[in-house]
Design a protein around this nucleic acid. Sequence first.
DNA 1: TAGATTGTTAATCGATTAACAATC
DNA 2: TAGATTGTTAATCGATTAACAATC
Lengths: 225, 225
Amino acid sequence: MTTELSTASLRRLPRYLRLLVQLLDEGHHFVTSAELARRLAMDESLVRRDLALTHFSGKPRVGFAVEALKTHLEDLLGLGTLKPAILIGAGRLGQALTAYRGFTEYGLRICGIFDIDPEKIGREVHGMTVQPLWTAPALVREGRIQVAILAVPAEAAQEVADLLADAGVPAFWNFSGHPLHLPAPVIVLNEDLSDSLAVLSFRLTHERASAACPGDAHDDAAPMA
Amino acid sequence: MTTELSTASLRRLPRYLRLLVQLLDEGHHFVTSAELARRLAMDESLVRRDLALTHFSGKPRVGFAVEALKTHLEDLLGLGTLKPAILIGAGRLGQALTAYRGFTEYGLRICGIFDIDPEKIGREVHGMTVQPLWTAPALVREGRIQVAILAVPAEAAQEVADLLADAGVPAFWNFSGHPLHLPAPVIVLNEDLSDSLAVLSFRLTHERASAACPGDAHDDAAPMA
DNA sequence: TAGATTGTTAATCGATTAACAATC
DNA sequence: TAGATTGTTAATCGATTAACAATC
């Protein structure tokens, strides 16, 4: 088994994890790939393949041990320890992201928020004081910051990222809408709500007409992984 | 040309759009697929293919008319008119989303925010008063609501969606983390930040070790489209 | 044992990339 | 015309699905 865990597979792991927690809650100790597939509305082959790629084995005739698989996935995803992160940009999006508690559930702890705008510096945002951007590199060097979340305007994104990458930030989660280019070992994840919004807007504009006519059935609904 | 615009292509259109605005700003009237590709760090064949699928024609030897293409894409994506939307769930995530101004840029206007929790009803969230959830269906029936943005807990998502779909909401943007099942013509877009977060956390946990050793070069950085 | 379920290989599907003929 | 760029077809790549042999 030399096959690598693809990004597509990786993105599905949190879904399994959530379902496993629920199954534990319901008192199940074992679950089959067929059951997992049914509840996640996906193909059971894909479930088995995904889980095999994580090197977790099920038992023929029984299925997968719920508790053990949950622990296994948490370990694999590195969710055990909270990773220190900083947030750059205290604008609307930045404040919005600070408020999102899901970060903590998935391994991130925001321990600093920065901006370049003197208007914003010194303000309180969800219990943290906004600091001047130029102080961020020092914190990075001391504090073992592992992730920088970028919520800056698109024009500023690359410059800020370069600055922080120089200071040693190993991973970026980029919400600026400007795709980042950073040298090799740096991890970059570009997030863009407007990508999805475009799909929604397009389908609303173009599918509604035919949707009014019964007999012209569409199915599916979920976006790409 | 019977080929359909795939979801993958659709998701790239906003990127072209953003770049076109920038190019206009820089005073360009025409742009080649090679230039678009270079600035978006993608393959030029893919650019041509995507644009061809939108039924916009370039001129050999010249390229694509920037202004016309911009208008064309905006029309195609239905960004001309703001679509009335409601937000369900005034918790942390809900408040975060209300603050996100990007919605307006991409065709959505939030014109109501609802919750089931008496604690939250009546509060002000970014200039709007949180209303009781049971009043939402009436607004949907009157107001031509086109999108419901779900920021409710995973457990409540399906129930709320059923309620609103019954009232006639044609499209759902679902941030609850619970994949929705809704009958055929209803459009569902499941959004899940923890999918991305999992990728980030995994790569931080597993790539860092080898990243420290030079000679073991990784490239690439962007996630799947 | 018979039967159910896993793990894995082969077949299919879809999306990206490369090549090139058509166009101006 | 020669040359550059589009539009489209063919080749490649990767991910999903189907099939089935191995396992208990």
